[in-house]
């Protein structure tokens, strides 16, 4: 059996507070968490001359973090002759034979001047850190 209570005039005030609380319970007021600042600075327009030169600022390059390990130095210096090592980290984890084929494509098809010993090191480095079995970051 539920007991009925009659709410009288003082109850009206309580009701108002209750309504306010109920409304509050339905949203969350602004709350600020701590996160990393992912900022990208604005740039200003360059000084423009009236001659025939149409130029833009240099294209930025970004530091790419390659996994620590044997062969990292060779990978950094030889691969970056033609492209940033972001080309490596952008890839999905690739099977070991694919990395072998990629490095060989750079040498045979694109003519990258990588000595045999360095090429071997680069291939094993990529196979040690960038396959589905071992890729961490």
């Amino acid at each position: 059996m539920r007991k009925r209570l009659s709410v009288l005039v003082p109850g009206a005030g309580l009701l108002l507070i209750a309504a306010g609380t109920a409304v509050f319970a339905q949203f969350q007021s602004g709350s600020y968490g701590s996160t990393k600042t992912n900022s990208l600075a604005q740039t200003i327009s360059p000084q423009l001359s009236q001659d025939g030169n149409f130029s833009v600022a240099s294209f930025p390059s970004f530091a790419t973090e390659l996994a620590e390990g044997e062969g990292r130095a060779e990978t950094q210096s030889f691969c970056a002759m033609c492209h940033s090592t972001r080309y490596i980290t952008m890839q999905p984890p690739l099977p070991a034979p694919t990395w072998d084929a990629e490095v060989n494509k750079m040498i045979k098809t694109f003519g990258a001047p990588i000595p045999d010993a360095a090429a071997k090191k680069i291939i094993s480095y990529l196979q040690d850190h960038y396959t589905p079995e071992n890729r961490k970051h």
Binding site: L40, F59, F62, H83, S84, R86
Partner: peptide
């Protein structure tokens, strides 16, 4: 999944690689 990057004459776009762009 690349980060937003700022390149000349461009709004922040998703960077796949920086060189070549």
């Amino acid at each position: 999944v690349g980060p937003y990057v700022g390149e000349p004459q461009k709004a922040p776009l998703i960077g796949l690689t920086d060189r070549p762009v």
